[in-house]
């Protein structure tokens, strides 16, 4: 038939038009991201905020994120096993919060070899195989801790408490703090003590130190656990406000100690921003956009005087 071609042509055009119309804005393949935390059990407010940031990014950027992790922060072998499982599910990218700076290197390389982009968040791994490291600059946090301590005292023995001598956050914060304190020769650091992120350990260490060094003038605490333990011990012993305590992270108890004057300064990270940025960078990497090797999440110094600023209260008291 002579017109068959014409008819077929027109019908096809009409059909194509309708289909195009109906299916425009159809779902593109969503970027699949696996988030491997140090632990899914620990319920620190910090990680709750990180996950809030992750959720916001999921909503904003239209990606998919599954969250896994080991049972405790020190279960390095378990985290390696979790990584292996995650690699097997072939996500587009992995956001890793490494519980050990060195021991997660191999599994990170394995993931990258399998074509999965690895982004580290908060705690890095010791390899360039990962695409970017999203974190606050822990060395800078350490330096801020040191600087805040020196704001309140100019001499005397002080102690440094850390949550880990293995993870990069612990290592670098201590390094930064020691460097800052070294600038004031009258301030003597009696030692760096590792509580292995355990509050009881930290409290025991604090008590021992107060006993050993009765003239101790201050504490630098590398994270929330150390900070609370020290504040608690000082309050118990009626020493609140007599020693200078500077710490990291943000919790309700820390805020109360800050109000009471037991803690003089806290350096707070912006965990919400960190979670958001990690997902954002992961999505960028998967889409082939370039990202810097280090994505810094800025920190804020909070003191009793500025804690109820309209900006700071938003950081201290997240919704």
């Amino acid at each position: 038939m002579r017109y068959r071609k014409l008819i077929v042509c027109l019908l096809l055009c009409a059909l194509a038009g309708l289909l195009a119309f109906r299916f425009t804005g159809g779902q593109e393949n969503r970027v699949r991201i696996a988030l491997v935390l140090k632990t899914t059990v620990e319920t620190a407010e910090f990680w709750g905020e990180v996950l809030d940031g992750v959720d916001s990014a999921v909503e904003e950027l239209g990606v998919e994120v599954t969250v896994t992790g080991s049972d405790s922060e020190s279960a390095v072998d378990q985290q390696i096993a979790v990584m292996e499982d995650v690699i097997a599910t072939r996500p587009d990218a992995i956001i890793l919060v490494a519980s050990d700076y060195d021991r997660l290197v191999d599994v990170t390389r394995e993931a990258v070899a399998a074509g999965i982009d690895v982004i580290t968040m908060d705690s890095d791994v010791n390899t360039d195989a990962r695409t970017t490291f999203v974190a606050s600059d822990n060395y800078q946090i350490g330096r801020s801790l040191g600087a805040q301590l020196l704001e309140n005292l100019d001499s005397g023995p002080v102690a440094v408490l850390t949550h880990s001598t293995y993870s990069s956050s612990g290592i670098q914060r201590v390094e930064g703090a020691l460097d800052a304190l070294a600038e004031c020769p009258d301030v003597e650091v009696v030692g760096v003590y590792d509580c292995e992120n355990n509050r009881d350990n930290a409290a025991a260490i604090a008590r021992d130190l107060l006993e050993e060094y009765p003239d101790l003038r201050g504490f630098v605490c590398a994270n929330e656990v150390c900070n609370l333990a020290v504040a608690q011990v000082l309050t118990e012993q009626g020493l609140g406000g007599q020693l200078t305590v500077v710490g990291c992270d943000n919790s309700r108890q820390q805020i109360q100690y800050l109000e009471q004057g037991v803690i003089q300064s806290i350096i707070i990270q912006q965990p919400f921003n960190m979670g958001y940025a990690a997902v954002e960078q992961a999505a960028r990497v998967v889409r082939g956009q370039s990202v810097p090797a280090f994505t810094e999440i800025p920190c804020v110094t909070i003191t009793q005087d500025n804690m109820y600023n309209s900006d700071n209260q938003k950081l201290l008291f997240p919704f």
């Binding site: 809030d52 958001y276 919704f319």
Partner: peptide, 16 residues
């Protein structure tokens, strides 16, 4: 002129 309420208050607060 400050934002009193926003559904994405956290993103606003975070400067994102």
């Amino acid at each position: 002129g400050a934002i009193l309420w926003h559904p994405k208050q956290k993103l606003l607060n975070a400067g994102l």
